[in-house]
């Protein structure tokens, strides 16, 4: 629409009807009715967008990952059913563990009866990267209530964490945004892994449709978002090469930890930024 659009120059009818009721009342009564009173946190920081908006923005941001994860959730449920797990056990595992890669690894190692030491150790190894992720994202949760911070960290997953980092790079991260991210993916994961266990049928290999590559693509897009940070290329190159080299010697999740450590080490060794000297 052009600025000189004739329709815009038409005199607008005066909108008086809806305002009359509030005339003479203090403005504060219109914005914060004293009867509501539930949103003290929002009142402390008035310039921030509403929690509802933040939560919705988080849910929208995680939506591509939530959709891409459905075939894998169904597959995981079906695999678990094949290993003899009941839908209740699958639901419990997804709800309490909520870590796709470690759940796939666990099912790969699953024996009957289940060996809890082996499976617990495998989960620990696969999720070592969470320590780095948590250490990186926790300081960006300064505005969270302490309980909300703990709950948010319990929802830490690759996609959620990456989206939260991306958000934190642009503006302050809010608890509502984080729970928007995490809530959708969590419900989605528990629901569809359980559905997979109930149906138990064979789903086609998600790789056949390129679905597995959705995760790689999401992560490539997110990596590209960090390309303006200092030492970006050496960091990514070191992490990738170390991960591939480790994978060749010791296949499995160890490569993630080793690769990440290599990238972080290179970033630390590179000459510090100029402003730091001041």
């Amino acid at each position: 629409m052009g600025i000189g659009c004739a329709a815009h120059r038409k005199p607008q009818p005066a909108r008086t009807g809806r305002r009359r009721r509030t005339e003479g009342f203090p403005v504060i009564f219109i914005q914060d009715p004293p009867v509501g009173g539930g949103y003290t946190a929002a009142m402390i920081a008035p310039p921030e967008p509403s929690p509802w908006h933040e939560a919705r923005a988080g849910a929208v941001a995680i939506l591509p990952a939530a959709v891409a994860v459905v075939p894998f959730a169904l597959l995981l449920g079906a695999l678990a059913a094949e290993k003899g797990l009941s839908p209740l056990e699958v639901a419990l595992m997804s709800a309490l563990v909520f870590a796709g890669s470690s759940q796939f690894v666990a099912l790969d190692l699953w024996t009957t009866p289940a060996a809890w030491v082996t499976l617990g150790s495998a989960a620990l190894l696969v999720n070592l990267r969470h320590i780095l992720m948590g250490a990186s994202i926790a300081p960006k949760m300064a505005g969270f209530h302490p309980i909300a911070r703990v709950l948010a960290l319990l929802l830490l997953a690759d996609e959620i964490w990456a989206m939260a980092e991306r958000r934190a790079a642009a503006r302050p991260l809010t608890a509502a945004y984080f729970f928007g991210l995490g809530g959708l993916l969590y419900v989605n994961w528990v629901l569809f892994t359980t559905a997979g266990a109930v149906v138990g049928a064979r789903f086609g290999d998600p790789a056949a449709y390129g679905f597995d590559f959705a995760f790689t693509a999401i992560f490539i897009g997110l990596i590209a978002g960090f390309r303006h940070t200092r030492g970006f290329l050496p960091t990514v190159a070191a992490a990738a090469l170390a991960a591939v080299a480790t994978q060749a010697v010791l296949p499995g999740p160890v490569s993630i930890a080793v690769g990440a450590a290599a990238g972080v080490a290179v970033a630390a060794i590179l000459p510090p930024r100029r402003e730091a000297a001041a």
Binding site: M133, L222, T235, A240, G263
Partner: peptide, 11 residues
């Protein structure tokens, strides 16, 4: 560097 490094190692 953590985000880019972890993601790069992951993929």
């Amino acid at each position: 560097a953590v985000p880019a490094a972890v993601l790069a190692a992951l993929i």
